[in-house]
């Protein structure tokens, strides 16, 4: 129903619309009741009020029903988040370095680029480090974001399911050019990616080897959270 550029879009948007839908029902209920009371019990129509101190049954109802609904929302959010945290073992690994105000991506053979190239249907793991202040790598079209913090090793991953070029933004305020710390992630099919990777490897004098046969995760990746 809510398919999108990455495997996370469907579930995240579904949780959102579930909460939006429930909220809309409750919201309309509150507003309509309120307006009805204001009109129906206006001082003109109803000069004498009736005092009602409270009603235990009602109080329990509007405590317990929200409790159940909220727990449902919590669980849906948690369940989506678990996917976002479950990095597949066979993911292609790219190191990301953030500095004021640019992104740099390093592939396993040492190739460095300023745009991220990814392969459709192939999980990609990003190991994040910052050279200076806090940044946050944000790909709105994929519904993911992770802070990039100096002295910390954060990790994120995604699986793109639609070809195209998507914006990467910095979401954590990092100074003067914060709003311009944009780059792109380019999602291509296997052949196009390999062609690009071979070309860029040659240009930078690095040895080309296909990234699409699963490789063991680099040794230091364990320390990324």
């Amino acid at each position: 129903m809510f398919s999108g550029a990455s495997s996370f879009v469907e579930k995240t948007d579904a949780v959102l619309w579930f909460i939006v839908g429930l909220s809309a029902i409750v919201f309309v209920g509150i507003v309509v009741t309120m307006i009805y009371f204001v009109v129906h019990y206006s001082r003109k129509k109803n000069p004498h009020p009736t005092n009602i101190d409270g009603h235990l049954g009602l109080e329990l109802t509007w405590t317990l029903i929200p409790l159940v609904l909220f727990m449902g929302m919590f669980y849906m959010g948690w369940s989506g988040y678990r996917d976002i945290r479950s990095v597949p073992d066979d993911a292609m690994v790219v190191r990301v370095t953030a500095r004021m105000w640019q992104w740099s991506f390093e592939y396993p053979n040492g190739v460095q680029t300023d745009t991220l190239h990814a392969v459709i249907y192939t999980p990609m793991r990003l190991n994040l480090t910052s050279m200076d202040v806090n940044h946050s790598l944000y790909i709105p079209a994929f519904r993911i974001k992770k802070d990039v913090i100096p002295g910390r090793k954060n990790v994120m991953w995604f699986k793109a399911i639609e070809r195209g070029a998507y914006d990467i933004a910095c979401a954590e305020f990092c100074g003067l050019q914060h709003a311009y710390m944009y780059t792109k992630v380019i999602v291509d099919d296997t052949m196009s990616f390999n062609r690009w990777y071979a070309a860029v490897s040659e240009k930078q004098g690095k040895k080309y080897e296909s990234l699409l046969t699963p490789k063991p995760v680099p040794a230091d990746s364990e320390s990324y959270q």
């Binding site: 996370f8 949780v15 849906m76």
Partner: peptide, 9 residues
């Protein structure tokens, strides 16, 4: 915002 997966976005 409290729902984790939405918050990440």
């Amino acid at each position: 915002l409290g729902a984790l997966s939405i918050n990440i976005h």
